[in-house]
Design a protein around this nucleic acid. Structure first.
Lengths: 217, 217
DNA sequence: TTAACATTCCAACAATAATTAGAATGATTA
DNA sequence: TAATCATTCTAATTATTGTTGGAATGTTAA
């Protein structure tokens, strides 16, 4: 019957609304930032180098798909992900992309800290070592993002303050630095700085969203 | 530095290639069908009521995103998902859509078999009952799809043959019918037929992809 | 109340994607 | 070998999205 076709069209149409949100590079970057905690339009605009107006327009798309919520606090409007599963979906999509697209693998190799960054296989051993204090897990994101959520046992030193605060870190233990996720360059920069200064530093590709997904498997 | 911006743009651009695939209703329908097993262009076109040319064009998008693989068998070209995780992503996207979009919830209510269809909470108890033979799990999809993959303990009777083969089913036990997933109407039709004929029938919303995701949690 | 600010809404234009028709390819059957 | 079939490729047309600038909204601070 023709009616069935009609109903099905409606169903797929609705699901595609969610897919559309994840089909634009700029929106993906906004989503990744929102995975770090709630943020104002201005902050999102600045961090992504997208104009405020265009940021607002993209956020509107996210809002209309009910993937983000807004809250007014004084002059500013804060955006946050409507549900943890939005972050999960971002992680699953970029993971699939990394597995399937050679082009992405090549682009990622360019920014990988040599020789090897931390890979999924040893998340458990990393936690064990962090618990015992054998390694220092270092969060180099801005303080607000650390406060919103961070990895277990992590210590916060934002990248901009790292050079001044080097003395807080031990030279006799490995330092595992992480930031917003595999597409964020802050941890890479931190590791380079630390190595120059004689520390043993390792780059963990995970951000909090990636870690959360991996931990729940 | 400007270079960093450039690299990041490339990365999100690549991930968006995957997102784009999931941003069109027609492609979603094709993906859902491909979750049931490999199929020819002609079959996909017929099952979705999309013209062959347009089906081919959409499949081209899937191919260019490396989400499907093709194999020539005689005259026909068979398409199949390149990886199980593509099916997983489809499940996660439509699940998120169902959780976030009221419009989708309403549309789904229209096609839900009354009073209640099987919900995620009792997957384990369903399997227990199926193992003991207390319920019959009935797969009403075409035979090829059943052969490609099916739920544990499931029995295959395609919807078109169901009326003729009713005698194969017991009247003293519940029959749990499933098909391609929550957007497929075959199980609903099967349940309606079975109830008319005096059977105790229940509609399971899961297809094999949904079941696989739920089972691995 | 006014000024300043953050953000959104509206309208226009540019860029990209969806759809269709016609020609081309490559395998099979007569 | 020619004819047929399934499928893709190319090009043209239409529909949808992305982007930008200017006006409008709602909030705070003077």
């Amino acid at each position: 019957m023709k009616n069935a076709r009609n109903i099905k069209d409606q169903l797929y149409e609705q699901v595609a609304r969610i897919g559309k949100v994840f089909s634009s590079p700029k929106r993906l970057e906004l989503i990744e930032l929102l995975c770090q905690g709630e943020k104002t339009v201005e902050t999102l605009s600045r961090e992504t180098s997208i104009s405020v107006k265009l940021t607002s327009a993209h956020l509107r798309e996210l809002r209309m798909a009910h993937l983000v919520e807004t809250e007014r606090q004084g002059k500013n409007i804060y955006y946050r992900l409507a549900d943890k599963s939005v972050a999960d979906l971002w992680v699953q999509i970029h993971t699939l992309a990394e597995n399937r697209l050679i082009e992405l693998q090549l682009a990622l190799q360019k920014i990988a800290t040599q020789p090897n960054d931390f890979v999924p296989s040893n998340r458990e051993s990393l936690m064990k070592a962090a618990r015992k204090g054998e390694v220092v897990v270092l969060d180099v994101r801005p303080t607000e993002e650390f406060l919103a959520a961070h990895l277990p046992f992590a210590r916060s030193i934002p990248l901009e303050e790292l050079r001044q605060r080097l003395s807080e870190l031990p030279k006799d233990r490995s330092i595992v630095a992480y930031c917003r996720g595999p597409y964020c360059l802050m941890a890479k920069d931190a590791v380079e700085l630390l190595r120059q200064e004689g520390y043993t530093a390792i780059h963990l590709r995970d951000g909090v969203a990636e870690w959360a997904v991996a931990s729940s498997l």
